[in-house]
Amino acid sequence: MSRHDIVIVGAGIVGLAHALAAARRGRRVLVVDRDAAANGASIRNFGFVTVTGQEAGAVWGLARRSAQIWAEIAPAAGIAIEQRGLLLAAHRREAEAVLDAFLATPMGSDCRRLPPADLARHWPMLVPPRAALWSPHDLRVESRTAIPRLAGWLAAAHGVAFAYGTAVHAVETGRVETSRGPIFADQVIVCPGDDWATLFPDCYAEAGITRCKLQMLRLAAPGWHLASPVMGDLSMVRYLGYAALPEAAALRARLEAEPAAAAALAHGVHLIAVQSADGSLVVGDSHHYAPTPDPFAADAVDAHILAAYTELLGPPPPVLARWTGTYASAAGHSIVRAPARDVRLVVVTSGTGASTSFALAEQVLDTMMGETA
């Protein structure tokens, strides 16, 4: 194979984000992936580019910038932005206090508390909440189609080459060993997600990375339209932008005192509902942690997800599909390691790949190109 400026291992959203950042800097890029098409965490999620509620500081900044990039490239890549914004609904008095506290932070800028009349007029499908916040910062794409369209656009518009069905066995400075022979490159960026057994396992072990398994559902079209993704009380004790606020402690105590909510929390369940172009809803999710989670979806966990849906949006429509996914999980947002000269290992460990990878990739490329210069 010919020599490239940069080889990227992994064609999920983290790898594609690095391919975009490299191509925008004039680099000749090859993306290598062992599968015939993206099939992992990048297509098994909501496609929800979440800004509101991300951890304050650097992560929130990454999400803001990544949402800007999604908005820039989506029209050119033929990726529809299915929904914009976020509605955060509070059904408990303690959740209302968290909502108001968030509005008072810098992250609450441009967000607003919706008056009851607006809620009744524009969100009649909601079980009436005590209060609701609307944010303009978020957006949603259909991940199962957005990821392949992003890859196709990178190839057509930026000359990024792809080698699918190609397993990578080893990486060292200037050389990538693959099932199709060696590939040579000035720099290598490895974005393998939760595959810690193949490349740089010591880095994974040092960072304490395990796997998070999630369950998700697609529901039939309910006959109404959600202008924005919707979240509720359980999300306010999971997303650090809310959960780190002092007011969240009282909400968690209230939820843990309610048997149904406590059972949901035990399975890491919180409710996000998004809507696709065909009207169907994607809802979830749950969180279970293990080095090798079992591949089976538990009906009891789905029942907790649907119960959270009922609290927020009323009786759920029929379930059309169920699936599981896994992603790399550890304390902190991500790891960026340099296991060899001109080599980077980049793993998002917070389940926020779609929301933060574009901006993270810009930072990684800026650093690598600065070192080369």
Results as ranks from 00 to 15, higher is better:
Val9Arg: 01
Gly10Glu: 00
Ala11Arg: 00
Ala11Ile: 04
Gly15Ala: 11
Leu20Asp: 01
Ala22Asp: 02
Ala23Phe: 05
Arg24Asp: 11
Arg24Ile: 07
Gly26Pro: 06
Asp35Ala: 14
Ala36Trp: 11
Asn39Lys: 10
Asn39Met: 09
Ser42Thr: 10
Asn45Asp: 07
Val49Gln: 02
Glu55Gln: 13
Val59Glu: 12
Leu62Asp: 03
Ala63Asn: 09
Arg64Pro: 00
Arg65Thr: 10
Ser66Thr: 10
Ala67Val: 04
Ile69His: 03
Ala71Met: 12
Ile73Trp: 05
Gln83Thr: 03
Arg84Asp: 02
Gly85His: 09
Leu87Ser: 00
Ala97Gln: 09
Leu103Met: 12
Ala104Cys: 08
Asp110Val: 02
Pro115Ile: 12
Arg121Cys: 13
Pro124Glu: 15
Met125Pro: 00
Met125Ser: 07
Pro129Glu: 12
Ala132Arg: 00
Pro136Gln: 12
Pro136Thr: 09
Arg144Pro: 00
Thr145His: 15
Ala146Tyr: 03
Ile147Tyr: 00
Ala151Thr: 06
Ala155Gly: 05
His158Asn: 06
His158Tyr: 13
Gly159Asp: 15
Val160Met: 08
Ala163Val: 06
Tyr164Gly: 10
Gly165Pro: 03
Thr166Ile: 05
Arg175Asp: 06
Thr178Ala: 08
Gly181Asp: 07
Ile183Arg: 06
Cys191Leu: 10
Gly193Ser: 05
Thr198Ala: 10
Leu199Gly: 06
Leu199Ser: 06
Phe200Ala: 04
Pro201Ser: 11
Leu214Cys: 07
Ala221Met: 04
Pro222Ser: 12
Trp224Val: 10
Leu226Phe: 08
Ala227Cys: 08
Ser235Glu: 11
Met236Val: 07
Leu240His: 14
Gly241Glu: 03
Gly241Ser: 08
Tyr242Ala: 03
Ala244Gly: 09
Ala264Gly: 14
Leu265Gln: 04
Ala266Ile: 07
Val269Tyr: 04
Val269Cys: 14
Ile272Gln: 05
Asp278Phe: 14
Ser286Glu: 03
Ala290Gln: 12
Pro293Ala: 09
Pro295Val: 05
Val301Arg: 02
Ala303Thr: 11
Tyr309Pro: 02
Thr310Pro: 01
Gly314Ala: 09
Val319Arg: 09
Arg322Gly: 09
Trp323Met: 14
Thr324Cys: 13
Gly325Val: 02
Thr326Leu: 14
Thr326Ile: 14
Tyr327Ser: 08
His333Gln: 13
Ser334Pro: 02
Pro339Gly: 14
Pro339Glu: 08
Pro339Arg: 10
Ala340Asp: 11
Arg341Gly: 05
Arg344Gln: 15
Val347Asp: 01
Thr352Asn: 14
Ser355Ile: 01
Thr356Pro: 01
Ser357Asn: 07
Ala359Val: 04
Ala359Pro: 01
Leu360Ala: 08
Val364Cys: 01
Asp366Thr: 15
